[in-house]
Design a binder for these strands. Structure first.
Length: 722
DNA sequence: CTACCGCGTGTTTTT
DNA sequence: CACGCGGTAG
């Protein structure tokens, strides 16, 4: 390999070229983490002559895995990647596809997502008549997930329960695991939990994996849970060629079971580990970096580090105080429009970040009305849409007939006159006879189940029959899905509905078929099970199209690993960010919020904007927001002069549409389009942000480069197109 | 027994 | 404000 030393700084080189063995790389934000990981892999292959098949790289997200794959292909100059780059969860799924038998599972198991898992828990609470003691099913799921992260099995959990609440959860946990097995399904946590259990109990299998993967590389090590840590520890075995990369300051998944002590204790767990700190930041200017560093310095119990950059001082950070969320949205539009012009930036150079998905609503309003292209990443995911899950449920029961969850989901979708009561009858009948629900349905068509309208069930089983034949005859995936949509009557019912919503649903299921076709292309020998697995593990974060020129809007969590020339962090109000529930926040939670802020700030390359509102409607109730404490933790000398934008924008009367007939305003004639450049005698050049009223009363909101935002009557203003 | 309608409730972050 | 759940009508 040519001159590694020229392409890496000394620290990076040290990490890349260090001999196989335990290696911990503290990679500060923007310090070229992925670069080091990929070069290290290339180094192992090209310099050390290591067989690529013996290397396993594990990341946390599909996005990260994908990026690493692409960069490796380029670096190694190959067409196909000779090594595995997987997420923890997909690696776990692979192990289970191979060894499901040793834990008495069956082939073609299903993978249940969060909603389905919570659905199972709801069912358990109902069946067991458990008084949940004020615990919501989602909360129960959370506790069970944490238990699995810590490798605590159901019986162990129940036995060690002290509190009344824990005993209830223990009971539910036991039943939950039982039902998952009954349905031949795993939840997300099982994809780590069970492989570790298998390794624990089957040295021969563990030995196989250890021999197979002699060199491990783990990305985002600070986000690993106890179960993931154990998986790494198991695989590392005696040879201990483990490279882990992480940054304790970017640990933001504690609520999901990530255990920051994993990275802090690496040197203890792997004696003789080499530690390299990467502290040169290649992303941000000094101002941004100093501000972020000062902020994170408020956390205790972190490894101290000193990030530095040679990119120069750069712009100061701008804090904008807005009157309300609507004004916040318009402020973003305003700043963005100016900056885009003055610096010749693309829309895709901008990111708008927020703490909770709910905030995206008000933020996107301003973008929509001003015609600025944007994409919202995250929120409701494509594969979590109702219609997609419905169609996939059909596919799931064809592959795994034990999947009662999916059977239950679509037995009456679209409507075939089979209600809850009928389903309960069949479910009870099936349970007593140890049959799965689908088989129970077939019995019902033969009149074996009392009180069930056989013809209606028959309608359902006939569809399944037809589809089974197709899948058995090896129908290609995309056309199989098309058949499901057609034969199930799903398409017809959506067409009949003929609402705007049903139209988008139709579009979505068509997109699903396209996606399946694309999957077939990419993986020629693909089985439906593999497709289902990919679909279960993929997230919306992975569907970001890098080619479209649009502003990216996403949560701060979603932004990890990304970078943008311009970043807006919004909603910086005490209580919202840091997010505080019940007026209280535990110190460790506050520190995680602060790390989240740190992650957000360090996404910015050149410009960083921080906005907060004085007034915000949050939970149904309006409240007056104090500025976030994080704002006061940023040194003054990195901040621009305060920019206050308090012009009330939202005092125009809300139009009522609900009362009486719907009324549609005639499309008003407008003198200017939103986004148009205009010139004003006194204020100079500006951009039209919004238009209200028409004719005599037409009022435009204009952002002037000289004086900021103004509302003017067109009649009086004497505007000229610029 | 199913389908529809209205009321009430409740919102962190995600593999 | 949107969704889920529960009650009622058919």
């Amino acid at each position: 390999m040519l001159s590694l030393k020229d392409k890496l700084n000394p620290k990076q080189y040290e990490a890349v070229a260090c001999p196989p063995g335990p290696l911990l790389i503290f990679a500060g934000a923007g310090s070229g983490k992925t670069r080091v990981l990929t070069y290290r892999i290339a180094f192992m292959i090209k310099q050390l002559g290591i067989n690529p098949g013996e290397i396993l790289a594990v990341t946390f997200t599909n996005k990260a895995a994908q990026e690493m794959r692409e960069r490796l292909l380029k670096l190694l100059d190959m067409e196909y990647l000779p090594l595995l780059v997987l997420t923890f969860h997909s690696f776990g799924a692979r192990i289970l596809r191979e060894y499901y038998e040793v834990i008495s599972y069956k082939k073609n198991f299903s993978i249940y997502d969060e909603d389905e898992s919570i659905g199972i828990i709801k069912g358990i609470c109902k069946d067991l008549q458990i008084e949940e003691g004020g615990l919501k099913p989602s909360a129960i799921k959370h506790y069970i997930s944490r238990a699995k992260d810590e490798m605590i099995d159901p019986v162990e959990y129940a036995e060690s329960a002290n509190l009344h609440r824990q005993k209830i959860i223990g009971q539910i946990y036991i039943e939950y695991q039982k039902r998952l097995r009954l349905h031949n399904g795993f939840d997300f946590d099982d994809l780590i939990y069970w492989p570790v259990k298998i390794f624990d109990g089957h040295p021969d299998i563990l030995q196989f994996y250890r021999r197979h993967f002699k060199h491990l590389l783990i990305d985002e090590y600070q986000d690993t849970s106890i179960s993931q840590y154990q998986m790494v520890k198991h695989l590392a075995g005696e040879h201990k060629s483990v490279t882990v990369v992480g940054d304790d300051d970017q640990s933001i998944y504690g609520w999901r079971g990530a255990d920051i002590t994993n990275i802090l204790n690496f040197e203890r767990d792997f004696p003789g580990a080499k530690v390299v700190k990467l502290e040169q930041n290649y992303r941000s200017t000094q101002n941004i970096l100093s501000a972020a560093s000062a902020l994170i310095a408020n956390n205790l119990g972190r490894k101290s580090k000193a990030l530095w950059t040679s990119l120069g001082e750069g712009q100061r950070i701008k804090v904008i105080e807005c009157s309300d969320a609507e004004s916040e949205s318009l402020s973003l539009v305003e700043q963005l429009t100016h900056l885009r012009k003055s610096e010749g930036l693309k829309y895709s150079d901008f990111a708008v970040l927020y703490r909770t998905n709910a905030q995206s609503r008000s933020l996107e309003d301003g973008f929509r009305t001003s015609g600025i292209p944007y994409i919202i990443v995250g929120g409701l995911r494509f594969y979590e849409r109702m219609e997609i899950k419905d169609i996939l449920a059909y596919l799931k029961i064809l592959v795994n007939p034990d999947d009662n969850i999916s059977t239950q989901r679509i037995i009456n979708v679209p409507r075939r006159g089979i209600g809850d009561v009928s389903i309960d009858y069949i479910a009870n009948y099936s349970r007593e006879r140890n049959l799965n629900l689908l088989t129970g349905c077939y019995h019902a068509t033969e009149g074996k189940v009392d009180g069930i309208p056989a013809p209606k069930i028959k309608e359902f089983t006939k569809i399944i029959d037809k589809l089974s034949k197709l899948i058995d005859s090896g129908e290609p995936l995309a056309s199989l899905l098309a058949k499901i949509i057609e034969l199930s009557g799903y398409e017809a019912s959506l067409v009949a509905e003929a609402t705007p919503q049903s139209e988008t649903r139709l579009d979505n299921i068509k997109e699903l078929v396209d996606g399946a076709a694309e999957f077939e292309n990419r993986t020629p020998d693909a089985t439906p099970e593999q497709f289902l697995e990919e679909v279960a593990l993929i997230t919306d974060m992975d569907r970001r199209d890098p080619n479209s020129d649009a502003v990216t809007m996403m949560t701060l969590h979603g932004a990890k690993g990304l970078e943008f020339p311009v970043v807006f962090i919004t909603g910086l109000e005490e209580g919202l960010f840091p997010l505080i529930r019940d007026g209280q926040i535990a110190p460790k939670d506050l520190e995680e919020e602060r790390r989240l802020m740190y992650v957000g700030m360090t996404r910015a390359q050149r410009h960083l904007y921080l906005t907060h509102c004085r007034y915000r409607r949050h939970f149904n109730r309006s409240f007056f927001g104090k500025a976030s404490r994080f704002l006061s933790e940023i040194p003054e000398n990195t901040l621009d002069d305060a920019y206050v934008d308090l012009k009330p924008i939202s005092n125009r009367p809300k139009t009522k549409l609900r009362e009486g007939r719907y009324e549609f305003e005639a499309e008003p004639k407008r003198s200017f389009a939103i986004g148009a450049d205009v010139y004003h005698q006194k204020f100079g050049y500006g951009v039209i942000l919004g238009i209200e009223g028409n004719g005599e009363n037409e009022i435009v909101t204009i952002s002037f480069s000289s004086v900021g935002r103004k509302k003017l009557m067109v009649k009086m203003a004497g505007l000229k197109p610029a």
